[in-house]
Design a protein around this nucleic acid. Structure first.
Lengths: 162, 162
DNA sequence: TATTGTTATACTCTATAACTATA
DNA sequence: TATAGTTATAGAGTATAACAATA
């Protein structure tokens, strides 16, 4: 399937059919990869009984202790209401705790429990296993380029008119 | 927001919070971009009253006349049953036609009507408008690199064990 | 036995609107 | 008035299982 090539990009490789005018379309490639990763992540996380957004949430809480739900939601670009469900789940499982901020009693200050940190480590190992084929298929620099271009594309679209 | 930078990739730019161990995670970046594009595509396609998969389908039919639904579904990595709904919609609208293959009477030979080709052109213009910010934000070569890396990542994940 | 198309169904992620309590 | 959290609900995309017709 020629996936060992690392030279100049050949957009039309790996396609069984003629993709016509969609050959240089970003949306299609993004959708394909995202679906495949999502499916595998859901399978990989199944033993943990947590939805796919739980890991990102835990990692962000761990790296930014005391953050609020709204801050988390903004950061991962999901709705506040979706974040409620995730934090509910984490709290029920004893993986995270909510505590009202003393300075602004609207906010929930979030923190990870020791159990949460442990599980986070296991889930990260899981996520890395899912993405390992990607890391194996490209160099460190290519991986960094991919992520950087994805983020630049995201910023470009988001900055534009809605 | 520093999105005008085109130099060496800085993975951690544009992030408000500390992303901790998720900084070099492909899945997160892919999810963010895909969601943003999906939302905008849905908005942009609203006037056409067709779901987001309809355009890819029309483009593939146009470029591969006589193809079957199963071939289309395989190509865009969706289930056969999802393709049925899309073709139903296209046929009801007079944009595509099904005809039983003479050589294999299980297959539907698909073709675009003139109306379908016209609408396809309009929808492509729409899709290009959505992706224009991306094309404006990077060079031709960077765009090609992004798509090529996405396809390589997809192939790598897909080839791996399930 | 395998494949094509089809139907019905369920699940995941995401979006929206309305409400409360704080600020 | 604006923001943080919450609830309920709806939507879009996708996956699974079963079936009939055909190979």
């Amino acid at each position: 399937m020629a996936s060992e090539r690392t030279g100049q990009p050949d957009i039309s490789e790996n396609l069984g059919m003629d993709w016509g005018l969609l050959r240089s379309c970003v949306g299609t490639s993004v959708r394909l990869l995202r679906n495949e990763l999502t499916n595998r992540i859901i399978d990989a996380y199944a033993p943990f009984m947590l939805r796919s957004g739980a890991l990102s949430t835990m990692v962000l809480i761990k790296a930014n202790p005391g953050c609020s739900q709204a801050e988390l939601a903004r950061e991962v670009a999901m709705d506040d209401s979706a974040m409620v469900a995730i934090i509910d789940e984490l709290e029920e499982r004893g993986l995270a705790v909510r505590s009202r901020s003393a300075t602004d009693r609207r906010r929930n200050s979030l923190a990870l429990t020791p159990e949460g940190e442990t599980l986070m480590g296991e889930m990260i190992a899981c996520a890395m296993r899912v993405e390992k084929p990607i890391r194996d298929a490209m160099s460190e620099e290519e991986l960094a380029t991919l992520i950087a271009l994805l983020r630049r594309a995201y910023a470009a679209v988001t900055d534009g008119p809605r």
